[in-house]
Structure formats: C-alpha cells, structure tokens
Design a protein around this nucleic acid. Sequence first.
DNA 1: GCCGTACTACGATGAGTATCGTACGAGCAT
DNA 2: ATGCTCGTACGATACTCATCGTAGTACGGC
Lengths: 119, 119
Amino acid sequence: MSTAASARALEHPTRDQIGLEGVLHALSDTVRLRIVRDLAREGDALSCSYFDLPVTKSTTTHHFRVLRESGVIRQTYQGTAKLNALRKDDLDALFPGLLDTVLTAAEAQAERRDGAEGA
Amino acid sequence: MSTAASARALEHPTRDQIGLEGVLHALSDTVRLRIVRDLAREGDALSCSYFDLPVTKSTTTHHFRVLRESGVIRQTYQGTAKLNALRKDDLDALFPGLLDTVLTAAEAQAERRDGAEGA
DNA sequence: GCCGTACTACGATGAGTATCGTACGAGCAT
DNA sequence: ATGCTCGTACGATACTCATCGTAGTACGGC
C-alpha cells in the first residue's frame, strides 16, 4: 500500500489556481477541443475509452492530463475506468460565458468546415 | 525596387481562413493577451511602440506576427510606424461573442491577481 | 490465482515557439 | 545626404509539446 494509494488521487488545480492563458491553451488543440465538445454535448462524465480519437492511447492520456492540469476537466476513478467531467461550474464562475462561447464557436466552425451539409 | 515592394504589403488570412484553434492559441500567451487587451481598450489602431512589453523588440515583432497570422489583428504601415488593429468585425462574425468574453475574462483575472485593490 | 481490459509512466523524437542579439531596411527630419 | 527612429530579418538557443511505442499497474471477472 505504499506504491500507489488506494484512492489513486489525481492532482487538480483549485478554482483560483486556474488561469485564463492555461485554459485557452488547453482549448487551442484540435484533439482537446473535440474532447471538450463531446463532454459538453453528453453533459455528463465520460470514460476515456468513450472517445474515438485519431491518436494512440498514450497521446490520449497526455491530452486528458493537459485538460485536467489546466482546470478544464475533473477526473475521477471509477474502478478500472476513469471518468472525465467538465468543470463547468468553476469555469463559469471564473470566466463567465467563456466555455459556452468557445463551444458555440467550435460548433459554428465545424458546420462551416463540413460545408453545411447534413441537418 | 525588387528587395521590398513600395507598399510593404503584409500577409493576412482571409476571414474564412481564420481558425478557432489558431485564435485561441494566439490568445493563450500572456504577452499577446496583453496586447489584445490594450488594443481593445483603446479601441483604435496602435503602433507597435505604443506597447511597453517586458520583452525585446525582436520578440515583440514575433508576437505581433503570431497575432496577425492567426487573424486576430490587422497590420498596416503608416510611414515608419506600423498600426495594429483588432479584427473585431471578422472575429465577431466567425465566433460571436468570443473576443468580448475572453477580454472580460482577462479583466476579471487581472483584478483577481491585483488583489482587488485600487478603484 | 490468472487473464484481460483500462489507463499510466517513461523514454524518445521531431516539430514548434518564445526568447534574445545583431545587423539591416524604410521612412522622416534636419 | 546624414542621421534618427521604427520595425524586420536572420541566426541561435533553450524550452515546450504532440506524438509514438513499450512496459507496467490497477481493477474486475473467470
């Protein structure tokens, strides 16, 4: 019981440790922006394996860590799975409207890039 | 008359070449965010030398280029000076509310970091 | 106990970038 | 023309980061 604590606690920044630059940087990557969009769409915590990302698992782990350390998501263990949830309350408190605006912008851009098909 | 054209034209992305990730990345740097805040506060085009940044001139040039190439600012020559203006119209058209929200968030964070003094 | 699944840790690598110093070019004033 | 100021270009450097592969740990089921 020394190598790894039973709870496998993960480091998260407290609310007042979250910085705007860090959040913007976290969101400025295509893969991470996609993760955040999926998280927002589902509205609930999702396991890492839910996502079908165009990168390997190692890289996926890396991106989730960047999101966690910048304060965008909160990660908790649930058995062998790890659940990822948006820290919407914290972000909204610190930067009102930022998350929603970025998500809306991402959707708008996705539609533009898709050529406004589908619907 | 071959080394540099008389107009010294600068490369700018067209509106539909502006990407959200690029804009967020441009704004995720402390120095650049400060430039954008100053630009927004003054509301008009400012010369590079207006800014008192904690970096050398070379680095300043670099940051202005990142902002220009990501589509955040538009640069035009005016004699020996170079004027920098926010591309607020383009950004608002592409990502409604994004710029204002980020600026508001930056102000809020600056006040928190200053310890809510002054006023 | 044993194995599979889920995720992590570590090391490597190649690309990007923030920074600087120095040297140069463009325009303005005298 | 000479010199001054503003900004650029180029080269160097050190750091960050996105990516991968491999090996390992934690948990749950058989």
